[in-house]
Design a protein around this nucleic acid. Structure first.
Length: 262
DNA sequence: CAGGATGTTGGGTC
DNA sequence: CGACCCAACATCCT
């Protein structure tokens, strides 16, 4: 599930239950999710420490321990979630469990691509996450323009590129392109006069998705038409088209979304 | 049973 | 170098 809005919801869960609390115990039912540490290393680094307010960059959840202490970084990939339970019982899909006095946070993953990293005390988180562009939600309009200026290729692949803009995924990009009435294969270079529409569509899609904690699938969202028996444009009722763009299944309205000059 | 799934990476191509 | 394409990762669902 996780795109930026889902991770933001997990960040809120983490903030509610873990910020300011002391870690009692760390267990790692699936050590494969640890890419740069071991269950013992993770336990040694976190046990007894208190978490600070968690942060997020793109699709990474960043849970620091304050005062330059180590940072727990979680990337949920496609099927990861974060759950709080008062009982702390280990679930089948649990990969990492952080126990506190009054319950536990469970990093869960079905397909087990989820990645949990331990950023050593004093290190910059950015140096451990691979190349990431500015966060899609917190960046400003000038940064958005700067990132697209001079970029070749298509708009969907650009918006999906985490090194360019961090946080947008397949659903969000289809949704915002539909709102901006821009064809997913439109060349970035052909969209100089559509930047306002792209920017406001991105802001609006992110604002509503973050409020919901996921990409909504209501009647005004193209996302809800994905895989429907007879997928239709929520605005004009045209039959939606399904193609592959940037390696991902892409839904778009052939009546409303244009190439803009190509 | 084959194919696809909201993500990323590494390899190869042009 | 810049952009594209595909396979692979592990598991579930249609």
């Amino acid at each position: 599930m996780p795109e930026l809005p889902d991770v933001e919801a997990h960040r809120r869960t983490f903030a509610e239950h873990a910020a300011g609390r002391r870690v009692v115990e760390v267990t790692v039912p699936d050590p494969d999710v640890l890419t740069d540490t071991t269950p013992q290393g993770l336990g040694r680094a976190l046990s007894g420490r208190r978490f600070a307010e968690p942060g997020r960059h793109g699709k990474w959840l960043l849970a620091g321990t304050g005062d330059g202490g180590p940072v727990l970084a979680v990337h949920f990939r496609m099927t990861g979630t974060l759950a709080w339970t008062a009982e702390g019982d280990v679930h089948d899909d649990d990969a990492v469990v952080l126990r506190f006095e009054d319950g536990a946070l469970h990093v869960r993953t079905v397909r087990r691509f989820t990645e949990v990293r331990l950023i050593p005390a004093g290190d910059e988180p950015q140096d451990h996450l691979g190349p990431l562009g500015p966060d899609a939600w917190t960046m400003d309009r000038g940064t958005f323009d700067a990132v697209l200026d001079g970029r070749g290729g298509g708009i969907k692949s650009a918006l999906m590129e985490q090194e360019l803009i961090a946080g947008l995924g397949n659903l969000l990009v289809d949704e915002l392109l539909w709102r901006a009435r821009v064809h997913p294969r439109a060349a970035v270079a052909a969209l100089d006069d559509r930047r306002d529409e792209l920017w406001s569509a991105m802001r609006e899609v992110l604002r509503q998705s973050i409020a919901a904690g996921h990409v909504p699938s209501g009647p005004t969202w193209i996302n809800a038409q994905r895989g429907a028996d007879d997928p239709r444009c929520p605005r004009c009722d045209a039959a939606l088209r399904r193609t592959t763009v940037a390696g991902r299944t892409t839904w778009w309205c052939p009546a409303e979304q244009h190439l803009h000059g190509l």
